[in-house]
Nucleic acid binder design. Structure first.
Lengths: 189, 189
DNA sequence: GTCTATAAGCAGATAGAC
DNA sequence: GTCTATCTGCTTATAGAC
């Protein structure tokens, strides 16, 4: 049971509010009120609203980057890599579900240098995933559909998982992983 | 080549801006500037910013509602219904791609009565889709995975299609439909 | 570390002239 | 139908007392 700093508390509270109402709709007063302090007091711990956003988004973006690099470096088949990516997404969703709202919906409000860092990480991530799929098609492990359609279909599902996790979070994670992998890889019929 | 009213023009311009920056970030001044008029002039055609949002969202929501009702009433197998739903989503995405950003991301900013109307339509839509899937499982047409996982997986992909359509809109729609149906229904392997 | 007070700017919206 | 001028309230952020 670790004690969290005031800055970490701000980020935690802000993540929840951003998840509920979106970055632009949440004011510094809203965040302060939720912590039972005044808005001005926040500025003793953080430099501004932008900093809260970038701390939330970049931390999770780095988790995805590291996770994907780990999968890529493993010596397993393409299909097994896809499975690992799906499982990694589910794990990160469980640990950072509220932060994922900002990452998915509010990344465009990052300020310039953080914005380009985020976009770079996101593009690299997609490119790594694309390579896995293309390799799987070349090796005959994956059916030769348009690789972009496959990439998009899996990524959209994984990226919006955080929305669904909050509503039906009770579902056992192992069952979720098993069924999600099965549905995405083996299809419906 | 139909001439559009000033009100329709406002809604069209606003849809594009909401797609690019989100409802909360776009000001009435932004919309007016994009039309080369002053913000005050907008109020001669619409009652306020909220009205612009509800016009955009509810129109498309009704398209989905009607489309789903048509599919449900057809006398075809569950798998064929799923195919029809996917094709309908692709058609609506092509026709209303910018409006779909507001529908997906800004529906929570609708005012009370429009908000509840939208939520009702959305829930009915999901329930109809859920019934199709459950029926398919009962009839043995669809594998007996958790129906919520199947529903969520297909819906997430279809709901974020508008993002992808803008980037790679050049792809032939018939190829997209064929591959999307194949990937979502038959899977990767 | 939190407070009060306040600055400077932008938001949605209205009144009334043309 | 569009304009200018303006109102009211909220935004992020800072200064300085305690």
């Amino acid at each position: 049971m670790k004690t969290i700093s005031r800055k970490e508390e701000i980020i935690q509270v802000a993540s929840r509010l951003f998840y509920e109402k979106g970055y632009k709709t949440v004011s510094m007063r809203d965040i302060a009120t939720a912590m039972d302090i005044k808005a001005a007091s926040l500025y003793n711990h953080i430099n501004g609203k932008q900093e809260i956003l970038s701390e939330i988004i970049l931390k999770v973006a780095e988790e995805f980057t590291v996770g994907m690099e780990n999968v890529v470096s493993e010596k397993i088949s393409a299909i097994e890599k896809v499975e690992k990516v799906i499982e990694m997404h589910i794990d990160i969703t469980v640990n950072y579900s509220e932060a994922l709202a900002a990452l998915n919906n509010d990344w465009m409000h990052l300020e310039k240098s953080n914005l380009s860092a985020f976009v770079k990480m996101r593009e690299d991530y997609e490119e790594n995933f694309r390579k896995i799929i293309k390799q799987g098609i070349e090796m005959g492990e994956i059916k030769a559909h348009h690789p972009e359609v496959i990439l998009f279909s899996i990524l959209s599902t994984l990226r919006t998982l955080y929305l669904w996790y909050q509503k039906r979070g009770k579902l056992d994670m192992n069952i979720l992983k098993r069924d999600m992998v099965a549905v995405l890889i083996k299809g419906l019929i």
